[in-house]
Structure formats: structure tokens, C-alpha cells
Design a protein around this nucleic acid. Sequence first.
DNA 1: TAGATTGTTAATCGATTAACAATC
DNA 2: TAGATTGTTAATCGATTAACAATC
Lengths: 213, 213
Amino acid sequence: MAVIRRLPRYYRYLADLLRVDIKRISSKELSERMGITASQIRQDLNCFGGFGQQGYGYNVETLYKEIGKILGVERRFTTIIIGAGNMGNALANYENFKKRGFDLIGIFDISPNRVGQYINGIEIMHMDRLEEFMKTHVVDIAILTVPSHATAEVAEKVAELGVKGIWNFSPQDLKLSHNVVIENVHLSDGLAVLGYRIKEMEEQEQKKKDKQN
Amino acid sequence: MAVIRRLPRYYRYLADLLRVDIKRISSKELSERMGITASQIRQDLNCFGGFGQQGYGYNVETLYKEIGKILGVERRFTTIIIGAGNMGNALANYENFKKRGFDLIGIFDISPNRVGQYINGIEIMHMDRLEEFMKTHVVDIAILTVPSHATAEVAEKVAELGVKGIWNFSPQDLKLSHNVVIENVHLSDGLAVLGYRIKEMEEQEQKKKDKQN
DNA sequence: TAGATTGTTAATCGATTAACAATC
DNA sequence: TAGATTGTTAATCGATTAACAATC
């Protein structure tokens, strides 16, 4: 799983290399660009098969395609967004998702102000219509951008209606009995860690200064 | 660092306990709620000091406050958002940040359509004014929600102007020579992993079915 | 053939879990 | 005092790094 979570990063770096027309790359050079060891790169890539060639390195295009295959980039996933607030809006407008195989097919909310409006060409529907919608469409992924107090209930509902994965943006952790894959985002956790690390850096700099005096 | 990244999660769970008026908790009970081992909880908490009491467990309020102290919740950080697109907008409107000690004091963009508008009571300024602004205000954290091609340049600039931390939402990894703490978010990496895990789950279910026939 | 670089095994490191004495 | 539960040490597990033979 540690390896899996690194794959999108490899994929990004390889895309960059393709863009500047670099045809081949050794684990050593890639390691310098990415700031990890060459050993780890070879180890990681070998989990999925021998994509390289001794004495040559890796063909960038081949490797890019192979990692894409592993990540399932060729496969398309249908998604719906539940919660058309600011975050839901931002995600609905994120063009990159479509490029990466994620098709937004529905947006839901409960606020009368929002229902009926369009985001990126998709009508915001009332939550009342969720069940009907999910029974007439295959929905792979539900993106939850609802207030935390509503998260558990909504998650339970989409799980029952057969969603395969949930991308959860509320600070509330999700636990479901159903057979559903969950990725929690927890943005504010990341911000908290950033704050901690700044505090730590400041303290170390203070110590340095104290030493000098 | 593995421990640090778990602290915000502990903090959230303790806040939940406080909310339902639970006064004390044992590592065992917390472990069941959080889905990690009691051993890990005791180990984690002991990195920062003996907050518990043998035979009793942990006092929820004390522990909550202690973890808050470690994370620097009492400290306030000033932040600016650069890039007032959909994501910048969503973050600017996220009330939780303020509660957690992060004060948004400026928003910047280059689009004439956006400059001059207000988000959450804060005027969007043109990037031209960034330098002047940062010389007259202490800015702890820059939140970057600019298009990826602009990220490196903007990051370099705020680093030079003395920012202490960068919260980067562009898919582009940031590398800086300056003494700046960086947290990359890479939302689409998370989505890619979600896709992978769904694919994997489907394959396993398929195998199960094949076995049955 | 010689040089380069992989694939892969073995060694190291760090993080998690288990166990239990200390003590409230 | 007896029971509960921590703090902490030791054991285990997994992930990262080093090393090198295989081979392009």
C-alpha cells in the first residue's frame, strides 16, 4: 500500500519527462529528481513487473503507460458530488479529474438556493432525487462535501445504494460496514501539521541564535 | 513524524468525546473507537509525556488540551491565499481554519475579473501588490491554489519574501532552497488511489464469484 | 567486449505490537 | 488490598536501503 500511494507521484514525474521529450531515464536520475533513493524506485517498480532494461534504464513512455494501467487510468469511473458548497463547487470545476478518468454525472444538495442551478453544465439536484438517480445510473464514486454532522448519514445511504468508493472531505472519519472503499481527505489535519512544523522550525532557529550569543 | 501526523486525528476524537461529555478514557476504549491498537496510543502519547494515570486512563479534557499545545493550537498563524479560483474560494470560506488558529489576511490573483471582489470580507488584491503587502504584514503561511505552471514561480517569490510555510494545492511538487516548510496536498493523487482500490476490490469480488461457479 | 543499470537478495532501519512491571 | 491501566522495554513486523550478480 505504501508503494501504491507513491504511484501517482511517479506517474506525475513521468508525465513531466514526456512533456520535455525525455525518452529514457535511469533509476538514479529519477531518484535525484524525485528526492528518493534509486533503490526504492527499482524496488517499487519491480512490485509490478520488470519494466526496465539492464544497462539502459527505463523507457519513459512505456513506464508511464504501465503505471497508468496499474492505477486504472484507462478505466473510467462515474462520480457524483454530494454537497454543492464551496468545496463541492471547486471539485466540480476541476477539469483534471475528467482527464484522469473520473466523470462527474450528478451533483446533489438540499439547499433550495442551490438546487436547480448548474455547475459546469450539470444541474444540482435535490437529495430527494438521489435514490432514484442511483437506481437508474451506475455510480462508482460519491464525493462527500457535506457538513460533518450530515456525513455519516449520507455515507450510509450511498453505500446502501451501491456506491463502490467514497471520497470524504468532511473532518469526520467514516466507518462503514458495507464493502466500500473510503478515502478520507481531512484537509485541516494537513494544515495542523503544517502549523506544527513551522512552530518546530522556529524553535530550532531560536536555539541556533541562543547558541551564537 | 508518523506520530505527528496522527495527532490531529487524536485531537478530533478527543473533541468528539468532550462534546458528548465523556470525562475519561482508557487507551483500550479509544483504540476501539479509532481502529488502532491500544499499544500504539500509549506509545504515541508517551512521545510527548505521561498524560495518563495508571489504573484510571486519560482525562479527556487534559489530554485534549495537551495535544492542542503540541500542535500549536493556541498559537495563531496568519495566512494568505494566492489564486482566487474555485479552490482558493473554497478555502477562503472554510470557517474551521479560523477556529484552528489560522487567520486569513489577504487574497491575491491576477485575473482582472477577480481583483477587487470580496471573498468572506477580504478584498482580492492583484499580485502586483503582493510584495508590498508582505513587507508590511507578517505572513506565516501562503496557501497556493494557482495553476500548476505558475506554482514554482509564486512559491519562490513568497519564500523570498519570508513566508514560513507553504500549503500547496497544485499537482506540481515544490522544491525550495529556502528554509520553508512545505505541505503538498495533491488531491488528485488521492482520487487515483481511490480508483486503484476500487479496481482491486472489484477484481477480488470477481475471483470470489469465479470460485463459486 | 566493457560499461551501465537493472532485478533481486540481504542488511538495516524504523514503526508497530506484545508483554509486563510499576503504580494509581 | 485488588483491579485496572499506564509507561516502558522487548519482540515483531514491514519498509527502506545497500549490495551485487545478471544482463542488456
